[in-house]
Design a binder for these strands. Structure first.
Lengths: 385, 385
DNA sequence: GGCGTTAGTTAAGCGTCCTTACATATCAGC
DNA sequence: GCTGATATGTAAGGACGCTTAACTAACGCC
């Protein structure tokens, strides 16, 4: 392969590519373009076929064809002629039927109680249900999930597009829960089993990852480079880079709760000391400010914020993030903790990166994970996100 | 859009998607599949059309067609019948003609001297040229680049597939150098100008990013999740996540040299104190171990390694990386610094992540950036990486 | 030599998108 | 009200890409 005179760097071996790129057929292109049309309607709202053609770059002919297909699937509907009067033939507006189908969403991040909801295609929450765990784990916890799903499916008035689940633990790309200590799940093929049991498409992701998706699609995240820090009993993060969820080599990306930041810190449940979780998780924070007056509590929260900022500066700097979003108890995170973390990050990073960085609470409140679960389904079933 | 009874999370707004996905035509699919064939030959080596069909998932008919196209382009060649004897008609082996075209590669990371080389398609270095800068910056430095390229193009014995450049500074996806203080470049559309001046395809990336690509494709990087830490006069990093270069919101991903890790540290050229670069850059390291005996020097390097490990643990943990590769002076980085950093990362991260993490020197030595520049061209022109 | 197996090609068909042409419906100006 | 310009949407025909089915070529095995 190499000419004799060539010098070759030492150890110069060629390995297989990582992204196992697969073949693309004309039919896949069709699917992609169909999603493109839906995406346009989803994000920009109702418009004419000609508008869609301009937006997607496809011809009017092709767009008409795709729209006809979507009309047949009852995913979009004609909304009559465009009200404003212009030169030329009046345009027929087509819009996404946000009630065309419903999405069943689960948020399993609460230890005590599973949270379920029915959402429409626009992300609006239509119904809610709670399912207390009462300490059940493993197979029993799975049974709770199935029962909750069945209940929600029966409550949904429309055909169900799919089921989305945000769960704590490590989840692989196929929707199998590799490890979720709190729920007692190990290598549970959750998406596959649920899909079998419910006869519906099921998409599963880590809760913090789902939160990142939700914040991006429904929380109006500004652009590429988003990290959601989910603070609850533990601490997790979800990373959305270049519009894609980053999963990591062991599907453990964002699992920063047990990264040690202070070798002389407090003992952690994981057996080491000074994990980020010993500083930032909700119980730890409540314990530290319990009994303090307002001012002292704020000072304490600010000092935690500064330490968080010190840790985040490295991640923000390495990834050149645009936004860091906090999800969790607003009373703990939303005030001086956030402010201190923000200014600490700015102090520690290069100005271009730091100056434009947003550090804020989630705009979706406690529904981030539900919204993210919906995005999993929208993205998986319709190619919309 | 929302039914009246629906409850909607506060601030629930729908924004436009970030990945501005564009239309896909059948012709694009063809291009993709053509790359798939090349990719197979590049990574797995010569094989028969039938083998390629099995590997790509395409039919033998389609593969034959694609191979015919590649034969006409003289990118691949028939290597005769397969030597081993099996049942059935003997297979005709086709292989990539690594000498079919040459690639002109530039490494601008050295302050004093630009480094250029001609590589073949297998990444072997065929010719080298140096171009001393003698303090030239701005337009004069650009002239050196052009002259170096012209020289290398004239030296290359084959048609030149393209020009790849790894340069310090912030580079956008179009190959424009937004800021490169050392070279005195600001908003220089390097790829575009070079492409005009040379009448060749030109691909430009940050040097550390190029190094990451080079290490991945030619250094046998293990899989998804690679960070290359380029230690020289300054400090930069390149991140390869899920097979894609991560550029960041300001194209500044990996610019961690000026992230502050120690507010009470040494003053940095950037005006702040305790930047990572004040600890890890080559001049700083040399200054610290200068005059020390072997043991003391190793202890010093180990302490730097521990601090590096503390910083890296967060990044490795957040991204769930598989490999961190050091590029730079082996005498400084390759010994106790590396060992200390490695063990510190393991100590600080969750075992699943830390246990499988590799932290090693680059396998390509000083040629990483050149190799990466070649990958830019291979990937951009042939879809191979 | 017959049979099964594998490699590669040829022919026909289907799907996808494009270009071109046309029908439809409005506005602006006379 | 009529005409010309402009814009939307559809119809027909063609180019391209992949597939299936059928065929030829060449080998090992019995």
């Amino acid at each position: 392969m190499t000419t004799a005179s060539a010098t070759r760097p030492p150890g110069h071996t060629v390995r297989r590519p990582l992204r196992p790129t697969t073949k693309v057929l004309p039919g896949h292109a069709r699917q992609h373009n169909r999603s493109l049309v839906l995406q346009g309607l989803f994000h920009t709202g109702p418009m004419s076929r000609a508008d869609l053609a301009r937006e997607t770059g496809l011809t009017r002919v092709t767009v008409s064809d795709l729209v006809a297909e979507l009309l047949a699937d009852e995913l979009v509907e004609e909304l009559g002629l465009r009200p404003e009067s212009r030169v030329g033939k009046p345009a027929t507006i087509v819009g996404l039927r946000s009630g065309a189908a419903h999405i069943v969403c689960l948020d399993l991040s609460d230890e005590a109680c599973m949270l379920g909801a029915v959402l429409d295609l626009s992300g609006a929450v239509l119904h809610r249900r709670l399912a207390p765990l009462n300490g059940r784990t493993g197979e029993a916890a799975y049974d709770v999930v199935v029962a909750l799903c069945r209940e929600l499916v029966s409550v949904a008035g429309r055909p169900v597009l799919g089921v989305g689940v945000g769960t704590p633990g490590v989840v692989d790309a196929a929707g199998a829960v590799l490890r979720a200590p709190n729920l007692g799940w190990t290598a549970l093929p959750l998406a596959q089993r649920l899909s079998n049991d419910l006869a519906l498409p099921v998409h599963v992701a880590n809760d913090a990852n789902a939160a990142a998706l939700g914040e991006h699609t429904f929380g109006g995240a500004a652009g590429s480079g988003l990290m959601v820090l989910a603070v609850g009993k533990g601490l997790g993060a979800g990373l959305l880079l270049d519009g894609d969820l980053h999963r990591g080599h062991h599907n453990a990306a964002g699992e920063i709760g047990h990264v040690m930041v202070d070798p002389r810190g407090v003992a952690c449940a994981c057996g080491r000391r000074g994990c980020l979780e010993t500083i930032l998780a909700a119980p730890a924070l409540r314990a530290r400010i319990g009994g303090l007056d307002r001012r002292a509590a704020n000072a304490t929260l600010a000092s935690v914020g500064r330490r968080l900022g010190g840790a985040l500066a490295l991640i923000v700097g390495a990834l050149d993030l645009r936004e860091v979003v906090l999800s969790g108890p607003v009373d703990l995170l939303g005030g001086s903790l956030r402010d201190a973390a923000h200014s600490e990050i700015r102090k520690r990073s290069m100005s271009i990166v730091g100056d434009e960085l947003d550090l804020r609470m989630t705009r979706l409140g406690a529904d981030v994970v539900l919204a993210g679960a919906a995005v999993l389904v929208l993205s998986g079933q319709l190619g919309v996100s």
